[in-house]
Simulated assay, not measured.
Amino acid sequence: MNTISETDFQFKNQTSFYRGKVRDVYGLGKYVLMIATDRISAFDVVLPRPIPYKGQVLNQIAARNLEATRDIVPNWLIAVPDPNAALGIKCDTFPVEMVVRGYLAGHAWREYKAGRRQVCGVTLPEGLKENDKLPHPIITPTTKAHEGHDQDISREEILSSGLVQEEKYLMLEKYALALFEKGTQMARENGLILVDTKYEFGEVGDTIYLIDEIHTPDSSRYFYLDKYEENQAAGLPQKQLSKEFVREWLIENGFQGQDGQKVPEMTDEKIEEISNRYIELYEKFTGEKFKKKPSENILKRVHDNVEKFLKKL
Rank of each mutant, 00 (worst) to 15 (best):
E288L: 10
H215T: 03
K292R: 14
I298M: 08
V302Y: 00
S295Y: 10
E283L: 10
I251G: 00
R221I: 11
E273V: 10
L210H: 05
D268M: 08
N231R: 13
Q258V: 02
K300N: 01
R221K: 09
E272T: 14
E283V: 12
N297C: 04
L241V: 07
Q261H: 04
A233M: 11
Y228N: 02
L250S: 12
E283Q: 15
G287D: 15
N276T: 08
G254T: 10
L225N: 01
V263C: 11
K300F: 03
E244W: 02
K292V: 11
N276F: 07
E269Q: 13
G235Q: 11
E230C: 05
D226G: 03
L210A: 02
I274W: 12
L241G: 09
I211C: 00
D268N: 11
K243H: 10
P264R: 04
K239D: 12
V302E: 00
G260T: 03
R301A: 02
I298C: 10
D268A: 14
H215I: 02
K300C: 01
E230N: 10
R247C: 14
S275K: 06
D212N: 09
E273I: 12
T267C: 05
N276M: 06
L241F: 05
I251D: 12
K270E: 15
E229V: 05
Q261R: 03
Y209R: 00
Q232P: 01
K291N: 13
I274E: 03
I214V: 14
K292N: 10
I251Q: 14
L299Y: 07
E252K: 15
R247P: 14
I274V: 14
R277M: 15
F255H: 03
I211E: 00
K270L: 15
E213K: 01
I279V: 14
Y209V: 00
N276Q: 15
N276L: 07
R301Q: 05
S220M: 04
I298K: 03
A234H: 02
N276G: 07
Q258K: 11
K262Y: 03
G260H: 01
I208F: 10
V263N: 04
Q238I: 11
R247D: 11
W249D: 13
I274S: 00
H215V: 00
F290V: 03
Q240H: 08
E283C: 09
Q258Y: 12
Q258E: 13
Y228S: 04
E230Q: 15
W249K: 09
I279W: 12
E283K: 06
S295C: 14
R277K: 14
E288R: 14
Y282Q: 09
R301V: 02
I274F: 12
I298Q: 08
N297G: 03
P294T: 07
L225G: 00
W249N: 02
K289F: 08
K292F: 11
E288T: 10
Q238C: 09
E273H: 02
T267Q: 08
H215G: 00
F255D: 08
K239N: 12
N253A: 12
Y282L: 10
D218T: 09
Y224L: 15
V302S: 02
I271M: 12
D259P: 01
S295K: 14
Y278E: 11
P217E: 08
P237A: 09
I211H: 01
N253S: 08
T267R: 06
A233H: 14
T267S: 12
I208K: 01
S275R: 09
L250G: 11
I298T: 02
S242K: 12
A234P: 07
